[in-house]
Simulated scan of single mutants.
Amino acid sequence: MKSIGFLGLGIMGKAMAVNLIKAGFNVTVWNRNPAKTDELVALGAAHGSTPKAVAEQCDLTFAMVSDPEAALAICQGKEGVAAGIGEGRGYIDMSTVDDTTSQAIARAITQAGGRFLEAPVSGTKKPAEDGTLIILAAGDESLYQDALPAFEVMGKMSPYLGEVGQGANMKLVVNMMMGGMLSIFSEGLSLGLKAGLTGDQILDVVGAGAMANPMFAGKGAMLLNENYTTSFPLKHMQKDMRLAVALGDKLDQPMPTAAIANEAFKQALKAGFGDEDIAAIYKTVK
């Protein structure tokens, strides 16, 4: 069994690394705040001192960090992944970034002699804990094959999408649609309540028709209970919406609905709800 490094132990990364450890993989973990590695070390992981050190000693190194800046930071520099990768070892970045950032990381890794795969995920805290994420892989196909046993522990589906950039693009398309749906869902629920309908009535009718989906069912209950416990931080959704709108600009694709939803998330971010769940967009609507 290949040795695995895991960089980034936030809400998602911690759950994913725990599943790898419990599945019996030899896992070395690193986090910018070293205290976050303690629980995983107690479960059997080793502690890596730097991203470079982890990449030097592991066959495959996974990363799950918050944004393009963080993804570049752990790859670059004298203690970054690219400085330690070499010798055909693999680096799989599961962070949500834009295609340009992913391609820059790919160049750094391949120039250092390593193999690169981008593999952003569709899913939030619960799917990460349950190992039911959808993993959107693109890049070196031999590395994809090597990573499949780990992907099968972390996710329920892991399609290979081709060249580096296509995984990032797929993730932005999916999250852009999710953000737009949540924005209009919040407005609809608010409108219905102000018109005198009950929340349960609205959710029952939506759930029985063509719009029924797991997100409306899960987030609907959260909104009615004013429960914004974080499974996907709102600030990260706004980042994804921003990147999707920028991709539309680059490809000359009009996206008026996505642009308006992005403004709604920006308003929620400005109101101080960035660290709460994406459901907190409802607070700026109601």
Rank of each mutant, 00 (worst) to 15 (best):
R242T: 11
Y144W: 03
E226V: 03
P159C: 13
A221I: 09
Q145P: 00
A195C: 06
L161Q: 09
S231C: 06
P233C: 04
E163P: 09
G199L: 13
N213L: 09
M255G: 11
M157F: 08
K219M: 11
K235S: 12
M178V: 14
V174N: 07
A168D: 11
P149C: 03
H236Q: 12
L143P: 00
N169T: 13
T230K: 13
A208Q: 10
T229Q: 03
M157N: 11
N169S: 14
L189K: 04
Q166K: 14
E163H: 10
L197E: 06
D204W: 03
N225M: 07
T198P: 01
G180P: 03
V206M: 15
N213I: 10
Q145E: 09
L251N: 02
K235L: 09
G196L: 04
M237N: 11
Q253I: 12
N225W: 05
G162P: 12
Y144Q: 03
V245E: 06
M211I: 06
P214N: 14
Y160K: 04
A147T: 05
Q253S: 15
L251D: 00
G207C: 01
D146K: 12
N227L: 06
V153Q: 08
G188W: 11
L224Y: 14
A150K: 01
G180Y: 05
G196N: 04
P233L: 09
L148D: 01
D240H: 04
L203A: 05
M178T: 14
L193S: 04
A208T: 05
L191H: 03
D204Q: 14
L243V: 08
M170S: 11
L172C: 07
F216K: 02
Y228G: 13
H236N: 13
K194H: 12
D252E: 07
P254L: 00
G199F: 11
P149Q: 08
M222A: 15
A212D: 13
S158H: 15
N169H: 07
L251F: 01
A208Y: 00
F185L: 08
F185I: 05
L148G: 01
V153P: 10
R242N: 06
A210K: 13
G180R: 03
L182E: 15
A212W: 12
L243G: 03
P159S: 14
F232K: 07
G218P: 08
S142P: 00
E163Q: 11
L234K: 05
G188M: 10
